[in-house]
Amino acid sequence: MMESVLDLLSWALIVIGGAFGIIGGVGIVRLPTFFTRIHAAGMAETMCVPPILLAMMLQSGWSLVTFKLAVILGFLFLTSPAASHALAKAALHGGVSPHDEDIGRS
């Protein structure tokens, strides 16, 4: 009983994570300008990584593996926005224009 509930929750979380990952991938390919692509990648990273790692945490029970997964999750949660911010700042200083009229030129 308990295992099937946990399996069901893990399936749901993996489907959510995989769907958001693929949506982010499609966004990073199809969106028109650089800053919209940062949006797609950042959203995908915050919505794709935690559900999949949470699903694996549910499968592993209370053990060292759960702690390791939690450490990976916390680290990615901290560094992904930092990397997105650094990327946007570097692109802005590097001359990529964030304005709408430049769509198609960058």
Partner: peptide, 9 residues
């Protein structure tokens, strides 16, 4: 399934 979704991404 998770691996396939990640590979597509």
């Amino acid at each position: 399934a998770a691996g396939l979704a990640i590979l597509i991404t």
